[in-house]
């Protein structure tokens, strides 16, 4: 088990959101009752997010990043450990406090079309969270809906309020999703692959929008993605996840320029920038595939694919977190 992450730039206010020894396991059952094991989607995650910072959780599919997002949102119950928001553990909240928490954290999903109910117009979509949170006054709701649309630069709002999701382009749909996430005036936004379903030309636009909203309102933004090439411009700190754990974390430039963990190094090595010379050489790719989360390997989870594996250590003992460079943490025995 890794030790709790040491905070990098603890402000006086303390972290807005933190995870302590967070585990989210999904039980696998046969015939509906026979327990055959657990999928360890999130398996011992620690981090702290400071108010107003933008961070990215990066990893391949199945690394547990989406399960982590949903655990933070309270959509999954953690199996062990806790999520602490503004000093209080989510597990201790009563129903009313939980609802307040949900209003404080906005959620932006991957598939904008799927994230919007197809039978509601934009107005209704934006009113819904307000109705749920007891904003009875229709005029007040309408005013906030318009503000939210202006915020995501869907203006004039009148052009969009009575549109249905299928009448909007992918980028516009995602803006509506963002507007909906903003309408309850959250302190934090969790965005799960917000642009991976969009066209390349729209992606940048949406990411810039998210980033500008985040800086304008001092929001905390947790940005979950598989695409390292976009995070440089839209996050300040990166957490690299592999097989349910955070293997490396550092400020963006530090991580991109000096990757420490062999997995991060492989990941960066596999990403191409458009360059005709790419076609002339083979890329170095670690062999094999990420492990099964049902029976993860002993020791470091990356050791079966790692070319710098230390026999007797990496394959037996879980690596704790080391700090090989200032502010740069990694869970790898190489930095013992």
């Amino acid at each position: 088990m890794s030790a709790p992450a040491r905070d990098i730039r603890r402000s006086a206010a303390g972290p807005v959101l933190s995870a302590r020894d967070l585990h989210t396991w999904f039980e696998l059952r046969q015939w509906g009752f026979l327990r055959v094991g657990s999928v360890r989607a999130v398996d011992g995650v620690n981090f702290e997010l400071q108010a107003g910072e933008a961070v990215a959780f990066v990893g391949e599919s199945g690394c547990g990043k989406s399960s982590l997002a949903r655990t933070l949102l309270g959509l999954h119950q953690p199996t062990r450990g806790e999520v602490i928001f503004e000093g209080r553990s989510l597990g201790t909240l009563d129903a009313r406090e939980r609802k307040t928490y949900l209003a404080r954290v906005g959620f932006v999903q991957q598939d904008p079309y799927g994230a919007l109910p197809p039978f509601m117009d934009v107005r209704r979509i934006l009113h819904e969270p307000l109705i749920v949170h007891g904003v009875r006054n229709r005029a007040e709701r309408e005013k906030r809906a318009r503000e939210a649309l202006e915020e995501v630069r869907l203006s004039p709002p009148d052009d969009f309020l009575s549109k249905f999701p299928h009448m909007l382009s992918g980028g516009q749909q995602q803006r509506v999703v963002i507007a909906r996430a903003l309408i309850l005036r959250p302190a934090m936004i969790i965005a799960d692959e917000p642009v991976s379903m969009l066209d390349a030309s729209v992606r940048v636009e949406i990411l810039q929008l998210l980033r500008s909203i985040q800086t304008n309102h001092g929001l905390t933004l947790a940005f979950i993605t598989h695409d390292l090439s976009t995070v440089r411009h839209f996050a300040e700190r990166i957490f690299v996840m592999y097989a349910g754990r955070i293997v490396e974390q550092a400020p963006v430039n530090e991580l991109l320029n000096h990757p420490q963990h062999p997995y991060t190094q492989a990941l960066l090595g596999a990403i191409s920038d458009p360059d005709p010379d790419n076609a002339l050489q083979m890329r170095e790719v670690p062999p094999g595939e990420p492990p099964s989360l049902l029976k993860p390997p002993a020791g470091c989870r990356f050791h079966p694919r790692c070319n710098r594996m230390i026999p007797g250590t990496c394959d037996q003992e879980d690596p704790p977190e080391f700090e090989p460079r200032n502010g740069h943490h990694t869970a790898c025995w190489l930095y013992r």
Binding site: L75, E128, V132, H133, R180, L184
Partner: peptide, 21 residues
């Protein structure tokens, strides 16, 4: 579907999700 997940994420109750979503 994601829009149901979104509704849960902003705190919509069970009856509302069933009847309205």
């Amino acid at each position: 579907s994601p829009y149901i997940e979104a509704a849960k994420a902003y705190g919509a109750g069970n009856a509302r999700i069933i009847l309205r979503y």
